[in-house]
């Protein structure tokens, strides 16, 4: 089922709804993510982008509709849910590296504790991944000793260490100083080129144009428009998207 060349979709959302109290944050979301696809989700804040992203590994529960991952409905809780999460990488806006663990320990914890990989083997793989994201020389430091951009690259390595079937990026560059955004985007573009399935909530138009297969525009909890990056940014079809783009592209 999961061999390369598998054409079944990796993630399927059907009629997904979610409320926060009286706020209807996800409205009848239908969305399919194919294997190897890089999907960018953009839209105004409060539009439900992050909630959508977090619903896919069930960090947020949904009130209605179904979400399937790799052909199976998301488990509700327990060991099955933990196993699903181990197959879906997640990169957060605020990095969330384990503050009391070294950089290398951050990357090896999942493989050792969740997958039962031998420590030596996990450390070797962890070092390879840290080299890949350009942090190899900082492996024995603690997260607070690294810059935001470095921490976010470690967070990507931590996700990769689990050999995930896909990685969710929840505004990965929004908390970074401007000069550090590019180093993180470069790593993400590299992942996209290597065929990783990615869902990326971001406002980085450059990344969307360089790496995305598809852009989904969300507002008020709905998917308002979806298209290829070029078509979306040059010729948005809906007024809502035109209005949004005019606000972020003018400067």
């Amino acid at each position: 089922m999961t061999e390369n060349g598998d054409t079944t979709p990796l993630v399927v959302l059907e009629g997904v709804n979610k409320h926060f109290g009286s706020l209807h944050v996800l409205r009848d979301i239908d969305l399919t993510i194919s294997r190897g696809e890089v999907l960018v989700v953009i839209g105004p804040s409060g539009g439900g982008k992050s909630t959508l992203c977090r619903a896919i590994n069930r960090l947020e529960t949904v009130d209605g509709g179904t979400i399937t991952f790799d052909g199976r409905p998301l488990p509700a809780e327990g060991k099955a849910l933990a196993r699903l999460r181990s197959e879906v990488g997640m990169v957060f806006q605020s990095f969330n590296l384990f503050a009391h663990k070294t950089i290398l320990e951050n990357v090896t914890l999942g493989p050792v504790k969740v997958r039962g990989v031998a420590r030596a083997q996990a450390e070797q793989r962890g070092m390879e991944l840290l080299e890949r994201v350009g942090i190899g020389s900082q492996a024995s430091k603690y997260p607070a000793q690294l810059s935001g951009g470095q921490q976010q690259r470690v967070a990507i390595a931590r996700a990769l260490a689990m050999d995930p079937k896909m990685i969710l990026f929840d505004e990965p560059t929004s908390a970074l100083d401007p000069e550090m955004v590019q180093e993180v985007l470069d790593v993400m573009v590299g992942l996209a080129r290597d065929g990783m399935t990615m869902m990326v909530v971001t406002h980085e138009m450059g990344f969307a144009r360089r790496a995305a297969n598809r852009v989904v525009f969300m507002a008020e909890g709905q998917i308002v428009e979806e298209n290829t990056p070029d078509a979306f940014f040059t010729a948005p079809r809906t007024d809502r998207a035109k209005d949004f783009l005019s606000k972020i592209l003018t400067h």
Partner: peptide, 10 residues
């Protein structure tokens, strides 16, 4: 976020 990141790796 610490607990969320821990849940997210399984």
């Amino acid at each position: 976020g610490q607990a969320e990141a821990a849940r997210a790796i399984g």
